[in-house]
Nucleic acid binder design. Structure first.
Lengths: 165, 165
DNA sequence: ACATTTAGGACCAAATTAGTACTATTATAA
DNA sequence: TTATAATAGTACTAATTTGGTCCTAAATGT
């Protein structure tokens, strides 16, 4: 599947959320978890990964937290994805020439895999984190609502068990 | 992981292989399997899928086989991927608004998911099947060779068990 | 009829991913 | 100097997804 891993997906949500507060502002994993509605361990894991990848700056200890290292306009979606998953490589052949190729020498595609990789990488490099927080002209996607009563608290649809607590 | 499924990867190889013979030429699954070095059931599955998706034309019965429905220049990599995996959707939110979203209404990304999807889809639509068979200027990727002797028969590296037979 | 080929779906094993938990480290403040 | 609150890193397990194969049915040509 050409699809973002769920955690990568979350990472983008989290980064976007962070981008929404004033530049340089620090926030804890716990607070973020509350804001985006994901479980703390999950959010923590993602923040750790992004920090290790150099996208965030972390401060430990009491009063610690995370903040974006650069301005949202200077961070690309590609970077976030790579921060989570390592170098962007849509195919084995594109990622690791030494593992490739099980398909003997007659592989008619050969290095052309790089082209696929390149266009996608390029496209994602154009998309800034800032552009992900832009308000939409169109009404945004609809949030599922279990059909239950209560306009009060939007039911969390169960994708896994990321109930924040 | 933002990565093509193995079968999709194979599909591109197969399509590229088909593109290498004269336009309109028909070839059986068995013959293709031999050419690309994959197991027949696997190749069959892929061809069936692509045919159902409308990219290939199939002819049943003795003397049957598959052929590309359009010229390689008129088939995009995006189409092949979609033929295998259905509509291109990097995130759940982008694919199915009704399933989305477990992250209640405060999701700071909202419909901006579409942007990610859009740029990637666009990029892949630019890439034609024809461009995937272009010879390379640079020496192509290196094919793994188990270090064993024999310049004769390139050892099939085991990724799964797609030994053609 | 029979051999050959695709169509479609079912199934199982293997690989991957998500989520959680645990321990260590760092920082602050009482 | 102790307590507390925060991140760092890793390991583990359950759930999900994927790959690969097989089986039966339908079509087509000899």
């Amino acid at each position: 599947m050409i699809r973002l891993a769920k955690l990568t997906d979350y990472a983008i949500v989290i980064a976007t959320q962070m981008a929404a507060s004033p530049p340089g502002q620090q926030i804890t994993a716990r607070a973020l978890a509350g804001q985006v509605g994901l479980a703390l361990p999950t959010v923590s894991k993602i923040l750790k990964t992004l920090a290790r990848g150099g996208l965030l700056e972390a401060q430990r200890g009491k009063g610690g937290g995370y903040r974006l290292k650069r301005l949202p306009a200077d961070i690309s979606v590609a970077e976030i994805i790579e921060g989570m998953e390592g170098p962007l490589a849509l195919t084995d052949c594109a990622s690791d020439e030494s593992t490739c190729c099980s398909i003997r020498e007659t592989c008619s595609v050969k290095g052309n895999w790089q082209k696929i990789n390149h266009v996608v990488h390029d496209a994602l490099r154009q998309l800034s984190l800032e552009s992900m927080m832009q308000p939409l002209r169109e009404p945004p996607h609809i949030h599922k609502n279990t059909g239950a009563k209560s306009g009060e608290e939007d039911t969390l649809v169960t994708i896994g068990r990321q109930i924040h607590g």
